[in-house]
Design a protein around this nucleic acid. Structure first.
Lengths: 87, 87
DNA sequence: TTGATTTGTTTATTATAATACACAAATATA
DNA sequence: TATATTTGTGTATTATAATAAACAAATCAA
């Protein structure tokens, strides 16, 4: 019996992913922050699962080429919703 | 030649999806806001593609049962990153 | 070890998301 | 139509995300 995914789970996973991607590119928090026009503190909090703005999250996603993948998910959800009306 | 997905595109799509899902459930902005402990104005801005917090976006996603799908995407990205190291 | 870099954390300030209220405009319903 | 409901928009206030700076703790390199 697996517990349902919580909002906190998602924020923690977002932070984990940011850290992983950042380290893949061998960037420090400072360097990533500079590249995105954010402060290191904002990156620091994001990586530790704190609340943030969509702009911050999407800037990070964009920097690691994940924006398109996320956008596609949203489009798929929208389309699967439309298809429902055909049944 | 398709233009790259922008942060603005994603926010607009998030808003569009919220509106679509909300109308599927026959909820007014007011009712959705009440159900999530948010103000109608926050829903209003979200649906029109304005910036918001992760908490707001994830509360909405959770209400329409999209949290797990999103979490799975994040896990997949994390895992595909690990697999890379095997090649 | 040692020094250098990175990360975690604190405090104070600024920018802005969220709230609460009102009211007009648009949509839906009788 | 007329009425009710919903949505869009404005203003003021509050809550909080983001910034900036400093310093300690942890990690890495010489």
């Amino acid at each position: 019996m697996i517990d349902a995914v919580t909002i906190k789970d998602v924020k923690l996973q977002l932070g984990k992913l940011c850290k992983q991607k950042r380290q893949n590119y061998e960037l420090s928090q400072e360097e990533l922050a500079l590249a995105l026009g954010l402060s290191r503190y904002t990156i620091q909090k994001f990586e530790n699962g704190k609340n943030a703005t969509l702009d911050t999250a999407l800037k990070i996603a964009n920097h690691f080429n994940l924006l398109e993948k996320f956008y596609k998910l949203l489009k798929d959800v929208e389309n699967s919703n439309n298809i429902d009306s055909l049944y």
